[in-house]
Amino acid sequence: MNYLDALVMHGPRLWDGLLLTLQLTVVSGLLAFVVAVVLGLMAGSTKLLVRLPARIIIEFFRGTSLLVQLMWLFYVLPLFGPSLGAMLVAIFALTLNYGAYGAEAVRASLTSVPQGQWEATAALSMSWPHKMRRIIFPQAWALMLPSLTNLWVHLLKGSSIVYIIGMSEFTFELLQLRRTTDWLFALAIVGLVVYFIIALVLTQLMRLFEARSKYKLGRGPSLKEILSPVLTNKISPADEPAAVAPGGAR
């Protein structure tokens, strides 16, 4: 069978597989972000009772492999707990695994926010939720975004293994081509290109977020300037000389 014919024939199924892959990537990605923020904040706490459970969860899910977690949730959990079904197992495993990695990124970027910023919030008597939400997290956000972007791409790539538990995502559908064509080699390359394009779109999208968060901290150009090439010549705000002395001093 011709290589293109096979592609056309399998087109709709490949498309369905692709949609499932995207679904897994987005849903697990968002859930993993929530897990990362919660565990990251806990792991950065000064209280041992808050920090310790977070550390144990993080080290556990980072230390055991993704596939082990998938298999455990799929084969072992039903023995004494709920049988989740392949979709939920896939989402849970991807969420917890990459969420644990993300938690490390969140914690590290929180500690990278300069000491002076923490002290300034103390000097203004801000409460913990207040300073986190308004001062510390917005600054840590710019620092953690590159790591989170990388992890999201990792999650996309990791999702290619969930066909093992019977999810008919993109890699699964690619493998089905084996039955009708000998061109799997070429088709697998098509598969790689598709994954590459998704990954590129994800990273470029996140780069815009990163630029926006940096602009909000007064570093780098605004999104408007990035997205319109005409305006790119504009220089970012530089230090101005000191203004007139107050009160007309000396």
Binding site: A123, R134, I135, R219
Partner: peptide, 20 residues
């Protein structure tokens, strides 16, 4: 907290919040 609210501090490195 009640007491520290009545105390203000200016730092050597300013420590203004860059996100505001």
């Amino acid at each position: 907290k009640l007491l520290t609210t009545r105390i203000g501090m200016v730092f050597q490195q300013f420590n203004l919040f860059p996100n505001m």
